[in-house]
Design a binder for these strands. Structure first.
Lengths: 342, 342
DNA sequence: GGAAGCTATGCAATCGTTTACATATCCTCG
DNA sequence: CGAGGATATGTAAACGATTGCATAGCTTCC
């Protein structure tokens, strides 16, 4: 079909070695030769065949990002960050979701094992046990970084937001407004983000001499529906909290909608804080006060961490990059209403 | 590093040819041999090296999706659809955005030309002239499909929503509510979606004996900011329209916010219709009436079209798949207020 | 019993590069 | 002038699979 390096060599009267060198190490050939070869290359629009090159070089020049759900818009900005950094280094980005990666008993690592990619950016912290075990093999572990979520075990390098600091901002904000009865709406049980965020809330409340109301509040995932469903649960809490910190924006938005359906107003009756700062947060009514994660930056950092790792700069074994977060104060939080106190 | 087919051959006492056949055409080897080989394969966790296989087979088993902006959450669902269909056929999904694909005078096609991918799903209809020209080369054109957006020229296969039908739904809805002065808020000039949607509006208005107000209204992109900026422009329209159909949800949401800032209420003073049905549409206040595109399905169809194309089923040269849309009626549209008429 | 047809396997070429090593040319310097 | 060191290029062996062709053993059937 298209021309190979042999054709170019023949057409320019040199050996394939010289053509190869002209293309990848131009200063290793004489100017005369270089110009002659390049002329032929340009005239015919020759491009090296990356399969052959990769086979020979034993690298794929690409990495795979695994997310829980490709359809979740939360990840877009992270992809943008990954791509931005990777493409600058000539590396391609493949994407998949855990579900299809694991379908049919497939290994999470098939891409790695088949040498289709050089490394993995894993954005899913809830992998099945079998997958976790595989990741820890010594020749694999050095090619994986986690981002956003991570594994409690295993010491993988990872990039994450400062979840605890975020919750401290949220708690301080609410306490500053005068709230004392503050609840935490949980995400998926066992999820590392949920665990971390809850711990952050507990920790910060404690520093104000406060504590969460007894029972765990919320169950299910990070979704709108779970938030909506939690409204009924909220109504049963005694004493009723004046503010709720939610494990995600989706939960907060869902909860707001559920509370509204039960006749409660935000922030008049209940203050709400989310986590993530998804685009929608700014547009719900009232706009959601939330902890903002810099998702683009998570992508950028994860990519560059992985790239360094692959380059053999095995500098820090269990390196963890923690990114700062900020509180976006909007309309869903206000001082608790005094009327309800007595 | 890891085992090659030679090692497996040696360990199981057969030739590499037999190992290869055992793995890819199991019925071509005897049961005895198959079991012996598979035992060795399983014991050592052997996986074929895809670089070598791809080089030999002259295919990459992967396709590249090119979007205008990876950070735009609009594309998430499309990626999910693409991935879902591709992975079922053992094909990988690479993603990039036009910007990085074209950076540094790179060709849009470098991935194709370098045999890194078998085909392209292009979701960007606003490619620079040079890129368009390249795409039309005969050996390239058969490996490309467009989705969402497309090129007016060139007869590429493409998957798209029924933009005109969507606008007919919008117009009929508004006219049914009693609106007669309906404006169209344009997206980027020259964008094929904008052109098509505007034409849909014009066409449908005409069938009701109506027409757009004279001057083009709106300029810039599909973004929130452009919508917000268009509010001032809207106020200058005489007579002032009672309803606006926007080229995208983002534009509609931005416009709503701009109008609000100028003291106009939606839908009391102006009705608004968007296009896309992005997640946020449901949560803005008032919730946005909009034309819903099935983005997952766009992905699914685009992937299967490309796969068929690559399989050589050159059935339909300039095949166009048009997907149905539906109108989501929400709170941003209402009958025009009578008070303003006189 | 032998030709014809299967089935199961092996041999070796091939895919398109990169690169270690060898070679040839030219320059420099004592 | 000849040794030694650059510099520029070529030769050919990988990289790890797939597959056309050849071969050997077995059936089958007249």
């Amino acid at each position: 079909m298209s021309l190979s390096i042999k054709d170019i060599a023949r057409l320019s009267g040199v050996s394939t070695a010289t053509v190869s060198r002209t293309l990848s190490q131009p200063d290793r050939v004489s100017e005369t030769t270089r110009e002659a070869v390049m002329a032929v290359v340009d005239r015919h629009g020759y491009r090296v065949n990356s399969m052959a090159r990769n086979l020979r070089r034993q690298r794929a020049d690409s990495v795979l990002a695994i997310v829980p759900d490709l359809g979740n818009p939360f990840f877009s900005a992270i992809f943008a960050g990954l791509q931005q950094t990777l493409s600058a280094g000539g590396t391609d980005l493949l994407v998949t979701d855990s579900h299809s990666a694991l379908r049919g008993g497939q290994s999470l690592l098939s891409h790695l094992r088949e040498a289709r990619v050089d490394g993995l950016v894993c954005l899913d912290g809830e992998l099945p046990e079998a997958a976790r075990a595989e990741l820890k093999a010594p020749d694999i572990a050095t090619r994986v970084v986690f981002a956003c979520e991570w594994l409690a075990e295993g010491d993988f390098p990872s990039v994450r937001s400062d979840n605890r600091a975020g919750m401290r901002l949220a708690v301080d904000h609410l306490v500053g407004l005068g709230h004392r009865d503050i609840a935490y709406l949980s995400g998926p049980g066992g999820n590392v983000l949920d665990t971390e965020r809850r711990a952050g809330v507990v920790e910060s409340l404690a520093s104000h001499g406060l504590a969460l109301p007894g029972p765990r509040f919320g169950s299910g995932d990070f979704s709108l529906e779970a938030g909506r469903a939690a409204a009924a649960e909220f109504l049963a809490l005694i004493p009723r909290p004046t503010a709720v910190i939610c494990a995600s924006d989706q939960l907060a938005i869902g909860l707001a909608s559920g509370l509204h359906a039960h006749g409660l107003r935000v922030p008049d009756d209940v203050s709400l804080v989310g986590f993530d700062d998804i685009q929608t947060a700014e547009f719900v009514n009232p706009p959601l006060t939330t902890v903002r994660q810099d998702r683009l930056q998570i992508g950028v950092q994860a990519a560059s961490l992985l790239l360094r790792q692959l380059a053999g700069a095995n500098c820090a074994p269990n390196k963890i990059v923690t990114l700062p977060v900020s509180l976006q104060v909007r309309g869903s939080t206000a001082a608790p209403s005094l009327a309800r106190k007595p």
